[in-house]
Amino acid sequence: MKLSFLEPLYTQRGPFASVYLDTSRDGAIEDPDAAVQLRWRRLREALMAEGADRDSITAVAGTVGGDADVPGTHGRAVFTAHGHLALLDELPAPPARDTAHFGTLPDTMPLIVQHAPGIPYLAVHVHYGGRHSTDAVGTVRIEAEAGLWPLTRVTPGHRVDQEIPVADWTHAAGEVGRELEGHARRIDVETVFVAGDVWARGILVRRLPAALRGRVTTVDGAGESEPGRALMEQCLERLFTGRMAAHDRALLDAFLAERARGGAFAEGLAPAVSELQRGRVKALFLNDHPESPLRLWAGPEPGQLALAEEELRSYGIREISEERADTALARAVVGTRAELVVVPEQELRLSEGVGVLLRYTDPRLP
């Protein structure tokens, strides 16, 4: 996963307020606005206890309640620096727990995890309930969305909504297919899900451009789509659970191949830190351990991280802070233009939850 969406955040200097807040409005809560405000008051107290300045707290408060138009269960990640909003992102699911932190580096790992697996996809729902014949009366309705899962749940992708007379469907399906291919190409979709009436969707699939047709999976039971949420959301959640994006899977396969032959890889916190210091990491692999006690020391620049404070001081670095390991690692990944892959433990358990695929090996080493 490329973390370019975090680059604007890391161009700013801390300290940062990092807030993760459940802002769900799913109908299960009698007064969701009051519930959100109550959660925020608790987090505001936590920020004050950590020494956050008044302007930073005010900046966060200005965002609370700003996503009232997003239905269903979701959350918000808010980052401020020096009293100004630094980054605001909708979360496709509520945070595991509401948290607030004030410190030198932003706490971005929970946000990164919510962006995973980051699968580009196209969902198409073909609505038709009439007679299976082109001389029937009625219309075929096409709903489609090109998006990035799971973010599309709260940040809609490009949508298509058309109604076409049944008599024109055989010809029009080819035009619809070419339009869908254009939307799919813009985000390089890796899979296309087509649901709906078997006859009508079959005509569409057969007339899709070859590049798109080879990525099609037909599905049943797409369910109704809630306004403001992802098209076929419940169906996609079932299909994507436990799945990695193809790009991340290729990086993980490359890591496993290098590990098998003792090549361009490293595993464990200390070796990973060493490689990040030298800017040699192509991809960092992490098991998500929000409860991990592992800590690192960090300086002002992304590559300035170490297991011991003395190491950074020996380089003449004076501004040093102790951070959660994943917080410091995430900044180093962004700053060195590496990629980060969140690896489910059932997929691969890494030593200390960390591994790296290197850009190259050191020719001086055997």
Rank of each mutant, 00 (worst) to 15 (best):
N287P: 12
T11S: 15
P209H: 01
D98K: 14
L307R: 10
G65N: 08
A332R: 02
A195E: 11
W149D: 12
A172T: 10
E345K: 08
D161H: 11
E143K: 11
V356G: 00
V137K: 10
R97F: 10
I203Y: 12
V333S: 01
S314Q: 10
G14W: 15
L91G: 03
L284Y: 07
T58P: 09
S274H: 12
R76F: 09
H82L: 11
V19K: 02
T327P: 11
F255M: 12
G147E: 00
E291M: 02
D26W: 09
D22M: 02
T155P: 06
V189C: 07
L148E: 13
A264H: 04
E301V: 08
T108I: 00
A167W: 05
R153Q: 02
E181C: 10
A250N: 11
R259Q: 13
E267N: 04
G263C: 06
R359L: 03
L251N: 08
G66E: 15
R41E: 11
L151K: 05
A172G: 08
A17R: 02
F240H: 08
T139C: 04
H132N: 14
S351N: 03
A270K: 15
F102L: 06
P165S: 13
V273R: 13
E309W: 12
R324S: 15
T11K: 13
L365I: 14
Q37K: 09
S314C: 01
Q234C: 05
A59R: 13
T63F: 11
A338W: 03
R13A: 13
P94S: 01
T11E: 14
L85D: 01
V334I: 06
G182T: 07
R207I: 13
T104Y: 06
H127Q: 01
A59T: 07
V334F: 05
T217M: 11
E267I: 00
G228T: 02
R41P: 12
R153C: 07
G147W: 12
A61N: 14
D89A: 14
G263V: 03
L276A: 05
L105F: 00
L111D: 02
E233L: 01
G182N: 07
P8E: 05
D22Y: 04
Y121C: 09
D53Y: 04
Q12C: 03
T11C: 07
A298K: 10
P117M: 14
L43Q: 04
V78G: 13
A298E: 01
A245N: 06
A257D: 12
H289K: 08
L236W: 14
P293A: 09
L180R: 00
V333K: 02
R331S: 01
L340W: 06
